[in-house]
């Protein structure tokens, strides 16, 4: 069964425009003018149950708008959405029992309460009886190592602990799909790693479908098997991470350290990115040549060290963003 099915989804916002200065302010008060901003321009995609999907794009691409339409926050202007077979525009409450949401930029927890009290409150929101909530809190506390701070008011927690609690709070009703919008925003690398482990664990143990947006490419690389890229409200790419890497990783970066007497004869298919003395950093386009051919332009006997790496995924994604502008 499909966890999510989106067909030709559209959303347009009406934005008031104003000319510069005081004159412009008065003018816009007397005769307001508006322009339409097409945030989402008819996108379609499906997500399978248990899948971990990255939904990425540059700022203003339409990611959050799409998530908000799928979770029932915003009404679409066109197209259809089915989340677990439920239409969010018609059965928002029914859907809410089945999904969890974490918006990294928005806090759902009451800051003066402890995580424990917050979880109890969320339990009540989802109509879970007290005994069952206690059991689930105990289970989540142990599973996600919240023991140390479960009775500390949220306002006294570190950002990492808070986000961890936000995620756990969204799990109290055991959602089938979890929407995570920038869950690792502003976190240090160690905490980011903990959050990623938590997400992985959720997917593995509860078979939760994860719909993730993030600007942190490591999040995507470490968690997701499939990626959808959206830009200017349009779907730019929908592919597996594996395919993304194979199709787009057609360039290799080679760092070569040669002895002083070593020579580099140059090659049209080899692009020198950096040169310092007899140390070279080159880019080889595998569509045009092979690593072996590229290496022939170097004096092989003088090579002291060699390091071949892929172009970073971040660069690939940046290129895709730029191409789709």
């Amino acid at each position: 069964m499909k966890a999510i099915s989106v067909q030709n989804l559209k959303k347009t916002f009406r934005v008031k425009t104003k000319e510069k200065g005081l004159k412009g302010t008065f003018k816009s008060m007397l005769k307001p003018t508006y322009r339409s901003v097409e945030a989402v321009k008819g996108i379609s995609f499906d997500v399978d149950e248990g899948e971990v999907l990255a939904f990425i794009g540059p700022n203003g691409a339409g990611k959050s708008t799409t998530i908000k339409m799928m979770t029932g926050i915003l009404y679409p202007d066109g197209g259809s959405i089915k989340v677990l077979g439920i239409d969010p525009t018609k059965e928002r409450k029914k859907l809410a029992y089945e999904i969890g949401t974490v918006f990294g930029q928005k806090e759902q927890l009451w800051t003066h309460l402890t995580p424990y009290d917050n979880f109890k409150f969320f339990g009540a929101i989802y109509d879970i009886d007290d005994k069952e909530v206690e059991k689930r809190i105990e289970d989540l506390k142990n599973r996600f190592e919240l023991g140390e701070f479960i009775n500390t008011p949220v306002r006294n927690l570190s950002l990492g602990q808070r986000i961890r609690c936000e995620i756990v709070a969204s799990l109290i009703h055991r959602p089938k799909i979890l929407f995570l919008d920038e869950p690792t925003i502003g976190l240090d690398p160690v905490v980011k790693d903990n959050i990623r482990k938590l997400i992985k664990q959720m997917n593995k143990e509860y078979h939760t479908t994860i719909f993730l947006t993030s600007h942190d490419i490591s999040d995507i690389e470490k968690l997701c098997k499939r990626v959808i890229i959206i830009n200017n409200g349009e779907l730019v790419l929908d592919d597996t991470m594996e395919n993304l890497k194979y199709h787009y990783l057609n360039k290799k970066i080679i760092d070569i350290k040669m002895r002083d007497d070593g020579k580099f004869s140059g090659d049209d298919n080899v692009k020198v990115l950096k040169q310092k003395g007899n140390n070279y950093k080159i880019e080889v386009d595998l569509d045009k040549t092979t690593i072996g051919e590229a290496m022939k332009s170097f004096d092989m006997d003088s090579i002291q060290d060699i390091n071949i790496t892929n172009v970073p995924l971040e660069d690939i994604i940046t290129t895709i963003y730029q191409r789709s502008k």
Partner: peptide
């Protein structure tokens, strides 16, 4: 509510 447009402001529940 059908016209609600949300926002991406950083918001905390305080």
């Amino acid at each position: 509510l059908r016209r609600y447009s949300s926002s991406n402001l950083m918001i905390a529940r305080i």
